[in-house]
Amino acid sequence: MKRVYVNEQWCLGCHLCEYNCAFANSGETDMAFALRGKTLYPKIRIEEDGKVCYAVSCRHCTDPLCVKSCISGALSIEDGAVCIDHEKCVGCLTCVLVCPYGAVAPGPDGAASKCELCLKNSCGAPACVEGCPNGAIVFEEREAVMT
């Protein structure tokens, strides 16, 4: 399945992916209106320490701990993508407690918030990938990395 991957060596840490994500999921048509002065809840997030930077979003694990741990059944796998039903989610945040990548976060509506690959918003393809100025974020099929 195609997933979002970040090539760490190309990431500039510009945070544009966070803005594009928040905009894509805002339901608004104007970016400035959607984002200015608002608390953003991007589903992709830059981690940086001055030397290293890269973006992290849901890995859409093949055997996801969040889905197995969800107390309400709000998290499920749809065609390989880990999706969340905001109506069912009660905001217990057990998914935040178990995600090894820190890729699920408390969201604005009391429910948990996570990347759904822009499959459910009007973009239809990951906005973070489309808007990455350095081509660091890609949407492609990859195999597991062997150690």
Partner: peptide
């Protein structure tokens, strides 16, 4: 570390 991230973030998990 980078090797850990390459494995966890760089491919299917």
């Amino acid at each position: 570390g980078r090797a850990f991230r390459k494995q966890k973030l760089g491919g299917e998990v």
